[in-house]
Write a protein that binds this DNA or RNA. Sequence first.
DNA 1: CATCATACCTGTTCGC
DNA 2: TGCGAACAGGTATGAT
Length: 281
Amino acid sequence: MPELPEVETVKLQLQKYVVRHKIISIDVKNRKVFQGDEKLITGATFTEIRRFGKVLVFDLSNGYSIISHIKLTGQYIYRGPNLKNTPTLSKKVVGGVPGTHTHVIFNLDHGGILYYNDVRRFGWIKIVKTKDVVDFDFIKKLGPEPFGKLTLEEFKNIISKTKRVIKVVLMDQSKIGGIGNIYANDALWESKILPSRTSNSLNEDEQKDLYKAILKVLETGMKYGGASELSFVTPEGSEGSYQMHTLVYGKQKTKCKRCGTIIVKTTLGGRGTYFCPKCQK
DNA sequence: CATCATACCTGTTCGC
DNA sequence: TGCGAACAGGTATGAT
């Protein structure tokens, strides 16, 4: 579920809390999660945070960068000075911070602490030279991003070139960067297109409607601070609220918001797929 | 090259 | 109520 809107939310909050601060020490609890030599970046200062699709890049003052993917259950949590709203930690932070699922702890110069928690340990943190970030395999293979290089024309090109199922194509990071299961389901509902349609079968109007729907649902996701359906939390330790505003994701057995027909759940490409059998065609 | 199934993990939900 | 099975989904990998 962490997709473009969730990762963007993490980026925006961490920019407020860690940029311009120096890493005093790093406590690595899990070498599968933290891959690399922390000595290379100890003493360096965070200068900028970037996002490529669902990947975060923390640039540092000494020519190195931290690249990190939170996958399904990774959580960056900040505790310390300047914390707005001093939110109580969401119970989705299983074990708390630091706790059973805390794998890395960054201690900063102003007394702030950045924790990385990850229940399933699918996520990872790697160190590369900043100049090599663009050549990092995942980033190199990433397709164009909504709100970036993904123009309508480019989108049409991408989806008309394959006859795979449209929903699977939307989630293929090498085709388009940043869309995952929640927003793929919602964008297809918004544009009234069945998730099982063949990618190259969409007509001009459908291509345009889907393109616009993708931008719309991602924008809505960002507005609500992401979706905390499963385990996503913001660096402030609170939950996003898009899960309360999904259009069709997770809505099986309830009425379609548009036509009242009962929403159906199936599986496509191994993932939960939700759609209205009447108004999506 | 393109496509597809499976592995990676464990907390939570589901079904009996 | 209890307990095992199924489920959740992003991506690397190997198979086809």
